[in-house]
């Protein structure tokens, strides 16, 4: 594959990942004690969970057409996010004993239910209400497409080189898949953390006022992924030894 296409694909993947992080309801430490809306952990852990699942499902489709790899990555990452939020909500509802409610909006934009009545005084909301859940699934889909795109671009570039050729012609090259996987995972973490710096730690989803910062986050992720893609081209040079 042309190295320029690879750089372009990695850059686009980075923007998708960074944009996707803005949708995910990251609650951080306050959410862990149910005093803020969202999943009670940081972006890095959510990125690790959904990113790795997305990459595994994308890598399982190696050799298939691009759309199938992207769809597999998106479904894997979104499923992991959905399961994390669902089980988190069980713990919040039946363990902590709170009603999922958002403090950022008066009525849930999707269900139209009242929110402000249910927010415990002194907290920033709690649990994962419907709008946050839907937003998180969208974030997982975007991130998974990004991870799958980066994996596909690096794998397809590497597999044509002699050092990375598959042991049996026509089968998956394990070395190329591992290098592409770890590269995509690295890209996922870099963009997830840059995006979370832009958010400033916690966000509820697309209805949160902080979501308006997304253009700045996408620009930051564009620059970072472009440089990462340029460095990634060096990987192709090593395939000729």
């Amino acid at each position: 594959m042309d190295p320029l296409i690879m750089i372009g694909a990695v850059t686009a993947a980075g923007i998708l990942i960074g944009g996707g992080v803005h949708f995910i309801p990251v609650g951080g430490a306050p959410a862990a004690i149910a005093t803020a809306t969202g999943v009670g952990t940081g972006t890095a852990m959510l990125a690790a969970g959904s990113g790795m699942t997305g990459l595994i499902t994308a890598a399982a489709m190696t050799g298939s057409p691009l759309w199938l790899i992207l769809a597999a990555g998106a479904v894997g990452a979104a499923l992991m996010m959905a399961v994390t939020m669902l089980v988190g909500n069980w713990v919040y509802v039946w363990g902590v004993g709170i009603v999922p409610a958002s403090a950022k909006v008066n009525t849930d934009p999707i269900t139209g239910y009242n929110q402000d009545k249910y927010v415990t005084p002194g907290t920033e909301g709690h649990g994962i209400p419907t709008v946050c859940y839907v937003s998180g699934v969208i974030g997982g889909l975007l991130g998974g497409i990004g991870g799958g795109l980066a994996y596909w671009a690096v794998y397809e570039s590497l597999v044509t080189l002699p050092a990375y050729a598959p042991l049996v012609a026509g089968q998956t090259s394990i070395v190329a898949a591992m290098v592409a996987g770890i590269f995509a995972l690295g890209l996922f973490f870099i963009n997830a953390v840059v995006a979370s710096y832009n958010i400033g730690g916690t966000i509820e989803g697309f209805h949160d006022p902080k979501f308006k910062r997304i253009p700045k986050g996408a620009l930051a992720c564009l620059v970072v992924s472009l440089v990462t893609g340029l460095i990634g081209v060096l990987l192709l040079e090593g395939g000729v030894f």
Partner: peptide, 18 residues
């Protein structure tokens, strides 16, 4: 950092491996 200590750790290792 506003995002916790582990996030910059993960990011630096991602940068290092690439």
């Amino acid at each position: 950092l506003g995002t916790g200590v582990p996030s910059i750790g993960y990011m630096s290792l991602a940068i290092a491996i690439i």
